[in-house]
Nucleic acid binder design. Structure first.
Lengths: 152, 152
DNA sequence: ACTTGAAGCTGTAGCTGCTACAAGTTTTAC
DNA sequence: GTAAAACTTGTAGCAGCTACAGCTTCAAGT
């Protein structure tokens, strides 16, 4: 059983784990945070265990693990006696994805760098950037770059 | 005026630009592809100009430009007499985003690499990976890694 | 000319991972 | 006791497509 004192409000939990109350409710809805205890008036109250669990979730998300991966990691961390091969596999798989993304992004960077430096600053008609986008022939790599979504 | 022969079907257009008919319709709906001519029966028919425009769009997307950026780039490429400063600005801005993303991803890779290599392969209880995710103290960088979404 | 099957049409819902309302209720502090 | 802050649920929105369902049209073969 978790700690006796279930006195943390959703707002405080959010503050302590650097996220928003909406996100906490979202995690509850999709089932990676357990349903919270409620006050008589129906508000959620949490204990320290929830802080730990949510910290884990947020941290794993920071590492770029998908919510599904986080779900698996959580399930595993709830089974401390099991061997950690699967944890290892998930992490390695993720690492591979990060590495391949890194590869593609750096090709992209080179391509962009090249096209920016080659722009002579004249008319659009003769702009190197527009030219390169118009015609893949101008690219270094023959294959698609694979996009670069979510660069926020 | 574009070419006289508007005889390319949406499927063929999609094939020639390496995307799907749904995507073409989507681009039309959001207004970056002009409304196509229609057969009597209501099917879309395109000319070579549409192939060029869609190629531009897809290629710009491959470079990671957002749809909004693509919209601006298209508007500019339609004005060949204008100076290309703005094109340049968009590309540079994008390059910066790619570079900062690269930075963060490589920090992430190092972190992941470290945690994978340190995993001794025992029980979850003592698994380095779970440990690191649980406690940010174990990380090299003090700040958040910023996520690594969409690594597909 | 007729049939068949592929390809097209519209409209809507789904994906990820939240975020942002609106309209009402509860808690907290004074 | 009251006012403000924080909470509640439910729903819709973001990007950039993708995937249906249920129907229509087109192109090719006979």
């Amino acid at each position: 059983m978790p700690s006796r004192s279930q006195s943390i409000s959703i707002g405080e939990l959010a503050r302590r784990t650097d996220c928003k109350p909406e996100t906490v409710r979202y995690y509850e809805r999709i089932g990676i945070l357990r349903d919270a205890l409620r006050t008589e008036g129906g508000q959620r109250r949490y204990g320290e265990d929830a802080v730990r669990r949510l910290t884990f979730i947020r941290h794993a998300r920071d590492f770029g693990f998908s919510v599904d991966a986080v779900r698996e990691l959580l399930a595993m961390s709830d089974q401390p006696d099991m061997p950690c091969q699967e944890v290892d596999a998930i992490a390695k798989h993720h690492l591979e994805k990060v590495e391949s993304r890194l590869q593609r992004l750096s090709v992209l960077r080179d391509e962009l760098q090249r096209m920016v430096t080659q722009c002579a600053g004249g008319k659009i008609e003769s702009c190197r950037i527009i030219e390169v986008i118009s015609d893949h022939q101008h690219c270094i790599s023959e294959t698609a770059h694979g996009g670069a979504q979510d660069l926020g």
